[in-house]
Amino acid sequence: MEARSPLAITLSVWRAIFLREALDRLFKERAAWVWLLVEPVMHIAFFVWVFAVVRARNIGGIDTSVWIMVGMLSFFLFRRTAIQVMHAPSSNKAFFSYRQVKPFDTALMRGVMEGFLMIMMSVIVLFIANLLGIPTIPGDPLLVIVTCGVLWLYGLGYGLVASVLMELVPELEHVLQILMLPLYLISGVIVPISSIPYPYQDYMMINPIAHGLELVRQGFAPHYHTASGTSLGYILAFAMTHVFLGLLLYRRFALRLVMR
């Protein structure tokens, strides 16, 4: 039999993993795909309700509902991608006995899967919100697309680095899990960063995810007042550093991830 080219092997492995991950993510339990949608919708609904009760009509000059919705979806894009990629090699261990399947393939495909699902979900949520009269048509779609791409890339990079580190030092899993919770609070998902006094606002803006959320909001409503110092270059630099560090770690520790 003729040998396949490395590219052909990689592509068929990617396709196989993508389909396997889709099965796992969407049909693992009864109506598993419903729960994917329910989690962000509940978070959004709860905070929209809280802000309605305190009569905060707008934040930074834009509608509160849009502010929450867009921020929440972007944050979930990062967090879900990061967490899924992080656990990709450990949940595909069984398949590494086929030498064609490399840990990196599983990580990348999980990232792609999650990005794909988040786009679908975000479109559904924003479409329904639009029908309810919330202005969710982006004013600067290009900025939204680019920023979401960078947030996804950062999630992928973070996941890549974390998955290798977790394999080398298993205790890190707990540490990384603990880190994820405050991230929700300090990224400006529910607390507007521009409402925080100086010099603490600058400290908050060290976190690259905060930049991402501010930029996506600006993409939806170009007149939005972002927190000072918001920069696409900053989060892009973080994302690229993580992706390349992740690739380096995968190159260096490829075998450690495969060995049982």
Binding site: N92, A94, Q100, V101
Partner: peptide, 27 residues
Amino acid sequence: SWPVGQGGLEPTLTGRQNAKFVCRVHG
């Protein structure tokens, strides 16, 4: 080949899904 009779199986997937996965991986 991979070691005969020692191919990995993912416990949460069905036999058919595992078989399909291996077919796809091998093109």
